[in-house]
Design a protein around this nucleic acid. Structure first.
Length: 510
RNA sequence: GGCGCGUUGGUCAAGGGGUUAAGACGCCUCCCUUUCACGGAGGAGUCACGGGUUCGAUUCCCGUACGUGCUACCA
């Protein structure tokens, strides 16, 4: 395993891709790229009952959006095809049988009713453990207790069975984690996990070990929720391929709910009003849409950035990192051990930073689509670019370009009357009428010239410039918002400016 | 219940036996702007608790509490 760095992300196609999932991908990816290694995506679809149509494609779409491109996968190909576990089904049984030959596994014929009865019995007896383990396996319906010919007869008769690992009692399993350091598990607390299900599919436990071996995975990153089953995987490595072949493990901390009590779930996003999935996920049966970061107007650069610093930092004060910087600076040793609560406010801040940082060309098309979808047509690309540069520092998510910039495309549909009316009088009216006259004669339409005239008339009429500016702003924009007043006038052009002042005069006029 | 993992401000976090315990988000005040932002200057707010070890613990050790994960023929 001292060879090439090879890591894998192993999602189950069961629905939307969660924040935590993307972060796992990201850490895998960063580690691989930092060490000139390979990033593999293997689809773990061994549970046919949970398989969801479209989920696999959706996962790859998300990775694509994030810019985390696999080197090998179901759709990218590679030397270890197939990369979908359901298509590798025949491989697993052979290893399960090998374990039985070696005495490290056994056939179990217990029905789910029998298993339940066993657990009830243990519970009634006040047992601390409800597990299928060395305490009870000799009283269950399996090949350990049955005579060989009885087992054979059951199998020949087509009785459904599973294959379980046989975990020896009183063994200590040392385990080294790149993030958590040295640990030890007591096999007395580990149960005889099912390795091969009755339908012939492997469980996760068997499949990861075999595929990680076959695909020559050197480092395995996964969520902390897998830590308790690590001893099963280690035992499997020991029995099947040897511990020296085993990848280095790293168990990532969990991303928790902002308000405490558990790991972040899709439900929390719905409840608290923020996305949890990378992209919109449409449930194929219910058609229910779960909003994603992308559709809410996040930039992939920001999304990656915010995920990277949730549980990791480089020890400096830097917080804004590009993917390239992350690859360069990432180190697994600096990943936190404790879980982190997700903070949507901070997430938005990252997006704002990236909107300001990136050239608008990076996201202009997406902004254009937003305007189009809101019914603003005939958008000139150069004009849109001008507008975007003017307002980008007041946008947090992409749709803000619409709310912050609509007046560059349409005249105000209403005015902030409360700001204007109390100060409106004949003198103001007179002022704006001469402003119209003077602007009409203005030859070069630029912010400085407009401002010069604006102030010149104010001085002549002995009026307060500030108050007039506020009014002109309301006339042009509709409310007290936006960048420099005269640059707005310059941008929307002479005709629009004069038109808007006249419109406003009609409203506030007499 | 059992087993695992964790615990620095409201949140993300740096740090690590002796420090005024960084920084960021959020919040508050002020400046800039007769707008909204951006930007700038300030402010409030923290080492879970109890024992050790030590001249000295936020830092090391042990407990406790709390949080969290697992305890499926799900991953």
């Amino acid at each position: 395993m001292a060879n090439k760095v090879r890591v894998r992300f192993a999602p189950s196609p069961t629905g939307g891709l969660h924040l935590g999932g993307v972060r796992t991908v990201l850490f895998n990816y960063l580690f691989a790229k930092k060490h000139q290694g390979d990033f593999i995506v293997r689809v773990e679809d061994t549970d046919q009952t949970r398989w969801v149509d479209g989920a696999e494609k959706y996962i790859f779409d998300c990775l694509d959006w994030c810019g985390l491109v696999p080197d090998e996968s179901v759709i990218h190909g590679g030397p270890y095809t197939p990369y979908r576990q359901s298509e590798r089904k025949p491989i697993y049984r052979q290893y399960a049988e090998q374990l039985i030959q070696q005495g490290n596994a056994y056939y179990a014929f217990d029905t789910s009713a029998e298993l339940e009865a066993m657990r009830e019995k243990l519970k009634a007896a006040g047992s601390n453990s409800l597990q299928y383990d060395h305490h009870i396996r000799m009283s269950m319906n399996n090949s350990l207790r049955l005579l060989p010919e009885e087992t054979k007869a059951l199998i020949d008769a087509g009785t459904p069975y599973v294959i379980r690992i046989k975990v020896n009692s009183n063994e200590l399993i040392p385990f080294s984690d790149m993030i958590r350091g040295e640990m030890e598990f007591d096999t007395n607390t580990v149960d005889d996990k099912v390795l091969l299900k009755a339908d012939g599919m492997p469980t996760y436990h068997l499949a990861v070990v075999i595929d990680d071996y076959l695909m020559k995975i050197s480092h395995a990153f996964r969520g902390e929720e897998w830590l308790p089953s690590a001893p099963v995987h280690i035992l499997l490595w020991k029995y099947l391929f040897g511990l020296d072949q085993m990848p280095h493990w790293a168990h990532l901390p969990l991303i928790l709910k902002p308000d405490g009590n558990g790991k972040l779930s899709k439900r929390d996003g719905d409840r608290l009003g923020f996305p949890v999935y990378a992209m919109d996920w449409i449930d194929p049966t219910s058609k229910e849409v779960t909003k994603g970061f992308k559709e809410l107007g996040f930039l992939p650069e920001a999304f990656i950035n915010l995920l990277a610093v949730l549980g990791w930092n480089d020890g400096t004060e830097q917080e804004v990192f590009s993917l390239e910087e992350l690859i360069e600076k990432f180190s697994i040793e600096k990943v936190h051990k404790g879980g982190a609560k997700f903070d949507f406010e901070k997430a938005k801040w990252f997006n704002q930073e990236w909107i300001k940082k990136l050239p608008i060309e990076n996201y202009k098309e997406r902004v254009k689509e937003i305007f189009l979808s809101k019914g603003v047509s005939n958008i000139d690309d150069n004009y849109l670019g001008e507008v975007m540069n003017l307002i980008k520092e007041r946008c947090i998510v992409l749709p803000d370009f619409y709310t912050q910039g609509l007046y560059f495309f349409d005249s105000p549909s209403s005015y902030d009357e409360a700001s204007v009316k109390p100060k409106w009088d004949e003198a103001k009216k007179e002022y704006f009428n001469s402003l119209i006259d003077q602007l009409n004669q203005l030859e070069s339409w630029d912010a400085i010239s407009i401002e010069t005239i604006f102030k010149q008339i104010a001085t002549e009429k002995n009026s307060k410039v500030g108050e007039l500016q506020m009014m002109l702003r309301v006339f042009l924009v509709g409310s007290k918002m936006g960048p420099g007043l005269f640059i707005i006038a310059e941008t929307i052009g002479k005709i629009n400016t004069l038109q808007r002042i006249e419109n406003a005069l009609k409203v506030f006029g007499a």
